[in-house]
């Protein structure tokens, strides 16, 4: 457990199970899983296991490319009944099994082009359980502040009810 809190850490709607906060230009998720670290690592790195959990509820994922080594590329195609396929892709930057890895996490947004950036995953062994910390580098603190503030405003207009609920819950 970390006891130090930096001033710039801002809660972004943590839930019972997942801590979500921003710190500078990073958006951070923390969750502890009741499984040994090697097993959690395998769930991320085995192409047969990734489709078992990757993506929001109701989506299915196909691993199109997964070359796990620094400089290697990855590409997952996510399908859902109510939208066109979305491709997530990027490049492995650093791999230190089973403790951490870093990759770029990108996806294309219509009208905006490629979005995303580098992402770091840390896997900590907590006596047989595993804490994952994912750190997405969104650019600047202003980018996160702006995006989430805009989400709240958009919610107020009434077009983004789901987002508003997401931002106000917890």
């Amino acid at each position: 457990m970390e006891t130090t809190m930096t001033e710039t850490r801002i809660d972004r709607g943590s839930t019972d199970t997942t801590t979500i906060y921003s710190e500078g230009g990073d958006l951070v998720f923390e969750r502890t899983f009741d499984a040994p670290r090697e097993q959690v690592w395998k769930a991320f790195m085995d192409p047969d296991l990734v489709p078992r959990w990757w993506g929001p509820h109701g989506t299915t994922t196909r691993v199109a490319e997964m070359d796990v080594r620094p400089g290697g590329k990855w590409r997952y195609v996510s399908s859902a009944p109510d939208r066109d396929d979305v491709t997530f892709y990027g490049e492995y930057l650093e791999i230190d099994p089973p403790a951490s890895f870093r990759w770029t996490f990108m996806f294309d947004v219509e009208g905006l082009g490629p979005q995303g950036g580098p992402e770091t995953f840390r896997f900590e062994d907590l006596d047989g359980r595993t804490k994952i910390t994912s750190i997405g580098h969104m650019g600047s603190a202003e980018a996160i502040e702006g995006a989430l503030a805009s989400g709240m405003i958009a919610g107020a207009i009434g077009t983004w009810d789901r987002l508003e609920a997401l931002l106000t819950e917890g």
């Binding site: 839930t15 009741d34 929001p56 994912s134 997405g136 987002l163 997401l166």
Partner: peptide, 20 residues
Amino acid sequence: ISEWVNQYRRHWEESFERLD
């Protein structure tokens, strides 16, 4: 601009649920 950060947030929150 809110949509992609929102998508990103939802992606990991729900992926972690499914992984669990």
